[in-house]
């Protein structure tokens, strides 16, 4: 047998550390699409309101925040309309949390399929992130609708050119959620402990992100912690774009977040490649 023969596939125990097979993922794009469709369609099967739930969730959350934090606790929203302020925060945060939460279960939730059929494993977390993007877009439309209504009734809104950054913010949150989620899911195949940590960790994480309190309300050491949080610049920018730019706003934070995201994502791919080959033995 000659060595220069063409093989379509060569499987060896250990492969290179950084291997991102775009071609293969592209070949399975139909599967990616089917998974996205499955996620969206199956979520609200056998419900009366169906896709309306996409709207109800953020509205009720923002309403609750408005009543509890805005009116009862009387927390500052930098003199912006309370409802819109919270809606902006929860829309972004839900999207990020959704990406992180659902990708962090990739290996464990799909063990049944992964154990029986091969396809590029990355398809699974990717599909989850894409369906989260779709959910986000729907909720974003809701936000824009509320914004427009308020804009014509309230003078204290200064939409500005930071809005051009919105698509970039969406991408950033998606990739960060995907990266962190993949890292968590890779470790949970062996150490289940992380699963418990992540479910309430995300909730706690929200409190050091300016979702409820504006950045201006954090002081001293807390301010440093919140500033170190890579989600802070994203949410601050998002709010600044629609509600008006605060005095202490600086776009520099976004560079930090971008760098963080790139590092996390590369690390995630690295770990993912390592784990996907043999996670079936340890899951």
């Amino acid at each position: 047998m000659s060595n220069n023969e063409e093989w379509d596939l060569i499987v060896k125990p250990k492969s290179s550390w950084f291997e991102f097979n775009f071609k293969e993922i592209w070949r399975y794009r139909d599967l990616l699409f089917m998974f996205v469709k499955r996620d969206i369609v199956s979520t609200y099967k056998q419900t009366i309101l169906g896709p309306l739930w996409f709207f109800i969730q953020p509205i009720l959350t923002a309403l609750t925040f408005t009543i509890i934090f805005g009116n009862i606790a009387n927390l500052s929203t930098d003199d912006k309309p309370k409802f819109l302020f919270y809606l902006a925060g929860t829309t972004c945060w839900n999207y990020f949390a959704d990406c992180l939460n659902s990708t962090s279960g990739t290996f464990i939730n799909n063990a049944g399929i992964f154990g029986k059929v091969y396809f590029p494993r990355l398809i699974s977390p990717l599909s989850v992130v894409i369906s989260s993007v779709l959910k986000f877009l729907i909720q974003f439309l809701l936000f824009v609708a509320v914004f427009i209504v308020m804009y014509f009734n309230d003078a204290n809104l200064q939409p500005n050119k930071l809005m051009l950054l919105i698509p970039f913010l969406v991408l950033l949150m998606g990739i960060m959620g995907l990266g962190l989620g993949i890292i968590v899911s890779s470790f949970t195949t062996k150490y289940r402990d992380l699963r418990f940590l992540i479910s309430f960790g995300i909730q706690l994480f929200m409190y050091i992100t300016p979702v409820i309190l504006p950045l201006s309300q954090f002081k001293g050491i807390m301010k440093k912690v919140v500033m170190a949080n890579p989600m802070t610049p994203i949410i601050e920018t998002f709010k600044a774009a629609f509600l008006g730019v605060p005095n202490d706003y600086s776009v520099n934070g976004l560079f930090y977040t971008t760098a963080f995201t790139v590092v996390v994502f590369c690390l995630a791919i690295l770990i993912f490649n390592k784990v996907e080959k043999s996670f079936m033995d340890t899951v």
């Binding site: 093989w7 060569i10 060896k12 125990p13 154990g115 029986k116 080959k277 043999s278 033995d281």
Partner: peptide
């Protein structure tokens, strides 16, 4: 669905 510990196949 899982990878070998040693050896290879084409």
């Amino acid at each position: 669905t899982t990878s070998p510990t040693t050896g290879s196949y084409k």
